[in-house]
Each structure stands twice: as structure tokens, then as C-alpha cells.
Amino acid sequence: MRFGGHVAVDRVSCAFRAGVTAIVGPNGAGKTTYFNLISGQLAASAGRVRLFGEDITRLSAPQRTKRGIGRAFQLTNLFPRLSVLENVRLAVQARADMGKSLLSTWRSHVELLEKAAFFLERVALADKRDTPAAALPHGDQRKLEVAILLALEPEVFMFDEPTAGMSVDEVPTVLQLIEDIRRKGDKTILLVEHKMDVVRSLADRIIVLHQGELVADGAPAEVIASPVVQEAYLGISRG
């Protein structure tokens, strides 16, 4: 991915399977750009993105979402004046492909409302369902972001720093949710995360980006111990 003369992500070629892959690297390493390339928020200047063998490089973000890529954003990205429930209901509605229904009322689709309420329960936000999203504290907004992603029921879950800005008490709820998805064993989870303890506890595989390039890829223990990662990411010099 090239921005003018700057190459933000350069030939990072990876295949992701079911399980949690953590993408780590220092600030500016290109992690979020890499995420944007996969989810379609940015169009790649070269290279290919494939999903279950299908080339989706030229597909837009909504088309990729419909094919099963779901994403939670690093900077909370909600519908601020809509209620918490409505934020999630819109995701459920998108998943059910009911957005173009013109003549029924949204309230009559009780199944969508119930499903949205279920996902709110899972992130412990059920009691705030009628609050406008903008009025939630930051930690709750992060949880709502995760609930929206869950409601999309994707094949590929993309979490961009899901616990950033959360209080210590709130972190386990989100980690447990990711762990629950992982335990089912059939979903691919991509996780950008700075907190190494979170990465250690969840990841089946770690890839490390540094200055837009892939510098390490493997099992957590092996990658964390690798000298190149110690230097590039953890700031420990080799000699």
C-alpha cells in the first residue's frame, strides 16, 4: 500500500486460518493500514486479497462485509445519536439483508430486535439499550463496538485494539467474548493489539509488522522470543 512516496504496507503475504492471529508491531508499523486493506476501507495499490479462495481485491467494504469479513474499529465508530440497541439492530439487519425493505416497519421485525438484545446481553450492555451511543462512557462504547461486530456474525472477525481505553474491570468481558469465538474453532480472528499479555493469552499465532514489512510470523512463544521482534517491537537491542 503506497501513500504518495511512502509505502505503508509492503508485500505482507499471509494466509489466515481458523483461530486467533495477533498482528503486532510498534506505532506506525502499518497494522491498521493492513487491516484496512483486508476489510476494504483502503484499496491496495498492488497485490491481492483473497477470501476462501475468491479474489476480493476489487470489492468495496460493504461487499466484503457481506462475504463474511466483519470489523471493529480502533477509534470507536458508532451511530452517536441512535440508541445502543439500534446500533446493534442495524448490524443484525445488515446481516439479515433486510436494509431494502421499504413497506414493513422496523419495529415489526421482532426477531431482529431480539437478536440485537441478545448481543447486548453478551457484552453486558443490556441495561443501557435505550441510551444514545454518544452518551456511553468510553469503555461501554468499546463494548458496543464489539457487540456490533458480533451481530454481523462474520466468518472473519477483525478486532483493532478492542480493549484500548477500557478500565481493568471491563477488559475480561471482551477477552472472554473473543475466547468464546475462538473456542468454537471455525472462525478466523484477526487481532491488532498492543498489550502483550492480551496477545499471549489469546493468540494461536502472531505476525509482527515493522515499517510496513512482515518481520516475524509463527507461534506466540517462538515469535516473542525471536531477536528481530525483541529489537523491532519490544525495543530490546540484540547484542
Binding site: 476501507q41 468495496s60 460493504p62 462485509t65 457481506k66 470489523r71 474499529f73 448490524a91 446481516r95
Partner: peptide, 9 residues
């Protein structure tokens, strides 16, 4: 932006 990310064109 968010609406697009939910899959709405």
C-alpha cells in the same frame, strides 16, 4: 463510514 462497514452500500 460505519454504515458502509456494516455492509450497506
Amino acid at each position: 463510514f460505519r454504515a458502509e462497514a456494516l455492509g450497506y452500500r
